[in-house]
Design a protein around this nucleic acid. Structure first.
Lengths: 211, 211
DNA sequence: TGAAAATTCTATAGTCCAATAGGTAGACTG
DNA sequence: CAGTCTACCTATTGGACTATAGAATTTTCA
């Protein structure tokens, strides 16, 4: 049942030192070919070891996917919760949420991509767990937006649910083109935040806070 | 090389009458489990026929994917091109583009979803072909937005490329939640269009055109 | 109704792949 | 330097899955 294979339960803590590299390789391969399209042989090739040797690090291919997905989401939720609880306008917090949501693309792009595209193939149990997490994150965005409407920062006729889905959709899509487009993640965050708050339209008195 | 298996080339035109149903079933299964996660047995089960019988309708699993992807995109490009060429403001045309881009979700959701998520698994040749198509569609959105900036309808400092990617990202994401959320596609289009043009922010004089 | 065409079937070949079993070389430790 | 642990290895099994061959059944229509 445990994610890590545990052939021997010993006192020593420094077990499986290369585990992070193995998971990196799995993330890369899963991101490139998809979970079912990737073989354990592919992962082994990246590492230069034999296919069977991988099973020293994880007990099944699905367990490897779970490890990758977990690293793809860890920190997300806590960061978002912290931001949402901060003082300040809903608008400012929403901008921070977008930045925070995009930031893992810098150093964990493969993990995030795998989480977004392959989590459906996780075994029942972990899929449910991660589904709950995912809905929790949506909720945080939604609540901040709702608050913004209540406080009159955002339009009263805004469909909060749809706005949430739109923002998450555009942010998540970034995982599929960020590398290819070669745009700095901070620039993406800035432009996206501006887009959803101010729109594309020209307006008489532009609301500014930029440096 | 042809997508459809052609064992006998005869005069009669009414060959493979059930083909549409077979492709429907393939789309459903591919949408649910992904291309590599789905088996031809799964497709056969949906239809109530034997696995091997499918090969009367397509020559390989990949060929089936290609048929599904083609139906997922057919019409898209032409419709978008027509809209972009219409007279009227860039803003109005962009709104139409968004509506048009979302409309296939009504009756072809599975096909669109498969196209978006599984096209990477198409064989080289058709992948390139469909890739070109995809870039063409991006281009249409981008050009309309660019025109809007040039004509002063949109902010001069708008990052046209990022705005395009944002809009397509949010629209495409809809394929993954539209059914579950049970929101009318027209409402989604309306809200998304409003969001990207006007933003969420409140403003002194709301720009209105609603009936 | 009967022949031809269309559609589905049975049976199976052949490949790919996840996972297990058990062994070994080298590093660390007392 | 003997024992133990880490990190691989070789060899293989068993299952799942695509695709082919050819027979059987059903439908079409002259």
């Amino acid at each position: 049942m445990n994610v890590l294979a545990m052939p021997s339960t010993r006192r020593n803590a420094s077990q499986r030192r290369r585990a992070p590299q193995i998971i990196d390789a799995a993330a890369r391969v899963f991101a490139e070919r998809g979970f079912h399209g990737a073989t354990t042989q592919d992962i082994a090739d990246v590492l230069g070891i034999r296919q069977a040797s991988l099973y020293y690090y994880f007990s099944s291919k699905e367990a490897a996917l779970e490890l990758v997905c977990l690293r793809g989401v860890e920190g997300f939720f806590e960061a978002a919760k912290t931001i949402a609880a901060r003082p300040g306008s809903a608008r400012k917090r929403l901008i921070s949420l977008i930045e925070s949501h995009l930031s893992p693309l810098v150093d964990r792009a493969d993990f995030v991509k795998v989480f977004l595209n392959e989590r459906q193939h996780l075994p029942r149990e972990s899929r449910r767990r991660i589904g709950r997490w995912s809905r929790g994150l949506e909720r945080i965005f939604e609540d901040v937006i709702k608050e913004g409407v209540a406080k009159g920062e955002f339009r009263a006729d805004l469909d909060v649910r749809l706005a949430t889905l739109a923002i998450l959709g555009m942010c998540n899509a970034a995982s599929s083109w960020q590398r290819k487009e070669n745009i700095d993640v901070r620039d993406i965050a800035e432009e996206f935040a501006r887009l959803v708050t101010d729109g594309m339209g020209k307006r008489p008195t532009a609301r500014r806070k930029r440096r």
